[in-house]
């Protein structure tokens, strides 16, 4: 009888024993908390996985877990790892789900095939390879989940950092900070246009001092915004184009030819004051 068949039979024959011991091993290591992960959930996850796992190995494929037989099982493993990662489990703790099957399984293999000198070696090896692969799969799944969390938080932060501020009567400023990907740029520009209408402003300053890269997409978004604002009767000023950005834009061939630009936000505000007829003067010293 071949190694794979032996293992498949073993999993079927000793389902109850393996499940019980596997769950026991997990409960000894995994941090349980009634609000996080309960004993019931551990049992549920484990039996669900065991069932899917048995179906997968029924196909006789214990080496290549990338095959179609394994799809459902891996999906389940992915979900289990994901939810535990989100609960704040460490990589070790999420991998424990798989690795805690090792001891019960190996003990059983020894007991079952121990009579034949050659057999347990092969079975142990096959089981080790398989569990290692599944363990590594949880590690990948853990990292992917963490990356998703980071990306979501980044996106949330991006949305937060788009304040349109009123500088003066009829004058708005939009200090842009950080990376302008296309989604964020669109959100920011729409917000500005809405604020122009809401505050009945006639000048809007877009300051890009804090923007590390201006590519043609960002430039196009800026130009579209300026045109839209113009149609609404407001003038836009773009300020804070740093020297290195200006040089890159020239090479790209982007010219803000009919757009008012100023070196600094202060210059832009001065220009806006002039446009709206605001005069600023230093108060004379009282003696």
């Amino acid at each position: 009888m071949d190694t794979n068949n032996n293992l498949t039979e073993l999993f079927k024959k000793y389902e109850q024993e393996l499940l019980t011991d596997w769950i026991k091993e997990q409960l000894a290591v995994i941090p349980l908390h009634e609000n996080l992960l309960t004993e019931f959930e551990v049992k549920q996850d484990t039996t669900d996985f065991y069932n899917a796992f048995q179906l997968a190995i029924q196909g006789g494929e214990l080496v290549d877990i990338k095959g179609a037989h394994w799809e459902k099982t891996l999906q389940l493993l992915d979900n289990i790892t994901k939810s535990r990662t989100r609960l704040g489990f460490t990589p070790t703790e999420t991998a424990t789900f798989i690795f805690s099957l090792k001891q019960p399984l190996f003990t059983l293999i020894q007991k079952e095939f121990g009579r034949d000198v050659n057999t347990p070696g092969k079975e142990l090896w096959a089981a080790t390879v398989l569990l290692d692969k599944l363990g590594l799969y949880t590690a990948e799944s853990y990292i992917k989940t963490k990356e998703e969390i980071i990306r979501r938080q980044q996106n949330e932060m991006l949305e937060l950092s788009t304040p349109v501020v009123k500088v003066w009567d009829k004058i708005l400023a939009l200090p842009l900070i950080g990376t302008l990907d296309s989604i964020r740029t669109q959100v920011v520009m729409e917000t500005l246009l809405q604020e122009i209408v809401r505050t009945e402003s006639s000048v809007a300053i877009i300051d890009i001092t804090g923007v590390p890269t201006v590519d043609t997409l960002v430039a196009q978004h800026l130009m579209k915004t300026v045109s839209a604002a113009r149609l609404m009767g407001a003038e836009c000023i773009i300020s804070g184009i740093r020297p290195q950005i200006a040089q890159s834009m020239v090479h790209l061939g982007v010219t803000f030819s009919d757009i008012t630009t100023r070196a600094t936000l202060a210059d832009a505000i001065r220009h806006a004051f002039a446009q709206t007829g605001v005069k600023v003067s230093r108060a004379s010293r009282q003696v």
Binding site: P212, T213, V214, D215, T216, L217, P243, Q244, I245, Q247, S248, H251, L252
Partner: peptide, 17 residues
């Protein structure tokens, strides 16, 4: 340098997109 960094990063942005 800062200028060359910005140049290659800007080109990167274009081609990646």
């Amino acid at each position: 340098g800062l200028v060359d960094q910005t140049k290659i990063v800007t080109a990167t942005s274009e081609l990646a997109r």
